[in-house]
Nucleic acid binder design. Structure first.
Lengths: 238, 238
DNA sequence: AAGTGGTCTAGACCACAAA
DNA sequence: TTGTGGTCTAGACCACTTC
């Protein structure tokens, strides 16, 4: 990484995380940092703005940059979290079961709307159950525009579709829009998940876009409510 | 507003929203915009970065800035949403009932931990029921560090505490950390809300910070699941 | 008055995409 | 090769906080 402001950002993040810089204290001023890192002030400011965006510091004009106490929170705040990352966090053994893998030749109007497709575009449908600690607690329903994904196998789905897309197909995912709602479980939820008497399902609708801003994937991730948790960080713009 | 990059940002947002700039098309290049607005390229870049952060455009190196189709989403994406704003969005008549207003002289350890207080700090406790369209669907439990808020009346709580803090006390809220989980309803939920047989409650835990990064409010907003909706926009950092 | 972060500039060089 | 966005610089002036 030959990126100066990212290197500075990462160094300061590391210092905050390992306690070298205490929460509540001030960072060195931008002019001091500029000298320390032998760079320009704008470059320092880029690094500090990243820190502020990600909730590590709070910048105050006339005062300085205050280090925020992050100890109470599990980072990363927000962002695209894949099942693999989630499973690692929760600990316990995880497993993926592929319930369905099909190529829809004629998508219905709901799907065409969600993926903004022509009637001739085909769509991959993948239904997977996620098991953590012996319980099936997540049902993932993925719909991928086939024009971007020529091939898809059960093996790929058992591992990570994301890794396949990014590493093999070189598709770059750039951003996603999420919507979180709570629903009654469907018959499909009941049959594929270990609901254990829970009466609701947390549904995360995920619209995933590629680098050129084309929408290529729509995912519904259906979670048993007791295992669901979402963290968000929001800065207020005055 | 004598802020050049914000003016440029707002102008472009307006153009995107009213359809002057069509989704999927490219913005003028940074150099063209620099000339159009008679400014420097870095200032244009600041405006464009804001647009990208807020989900209006996608920047692609070598190509340009693509306008994203926002028509399918209700903005604003994420952020601090107060009850007043929420009620306006959902339409229907809204009402606030103040169930409890008290000054806790000796906060218990849970509260001290959540608000990072000394044992001598006092805390305001406010419990309010929110009614929309004739149904009590939200239970808000607010805890405010009293060192920042000397006075609090039932009248203030019936309107907006936020407005009181920002306009009267001149406290500036700068950012918040949210955690969303799903719980079983408590006895309190059952007695104060119209649960109508729902078996779960969506709990939004909100940690609110002031401009100087001091934590001053902890809020639990408990929503009936059928009326809950959360929207998020996440950019992936490659 | 001195020090802080916020904005703005004009110019340079680089990485990448398209023709 | 040309044009795009990404990074970096050195310097200027401003708004705000603190002493």
């Amino acid at each position: 990484m030959n990126n100066k402001y990212l290197m500075i950002y990462n160094e300061i993040v590391a210092q905050i995380k390992n306690g070298e810089i205490a929460p509540g204290t001030l960072l060195p001023s931008e002019n001091e940092l500029k000298d320390q890192y032998d760079t320009s002030r704008e470059t320092i400011r880029k690094a500090l703005n990243l820190l502020a965006q990600n909730g590590y510091i709070q910048k105050v004009r006339g005062k300085g940059s205050i280090v925020i106490d992050i100890s109470k929170f599990d980072f990363p705040i927000s962002g695209l979290v894949s099942f693999k990352e989630l499973a690692e966090k929760m600990g316990g053994k995880s497993k993926t079961i592929v319930n369905e893998l099909s190529l829809i030749i004629k998508p219905d109007s709901y799907l065409r709307h969600q993926l903004q497709l022509n009637s001739k575009d085909q769509v991959w449908k993948v239904v997977r159950t996620r098991e953590i600690g012996g319980n099936k607690i997540i049902l993932d329903k993925d719909f991928l525009a086939a024009k971007f994904v020529p091939q898809l196998t059960e093996e790929i789905c058992e591992n990570s579709i994301y890794e396949y897309l990014e590493n093999e197909l070189n598709l770059k995912i750039s951003f996603a829009k999420k919507e979180i709602i709570v629903e009654e479980p469907t018959a499909e939820d009941r049959s594929l998940l270990d609901l254990e008497g829970f009466h609701n399902i947390v549904v995360i609708k995920n619209y995933v876009y590629l680098e050129d801003a084309s929408l290529f994937q729509y995912t519904e991730s259906r979670h048993r409510p007791d295992k669901f948790r979402f963290v968000d960080f929001a800065r207020r713009n005055h």
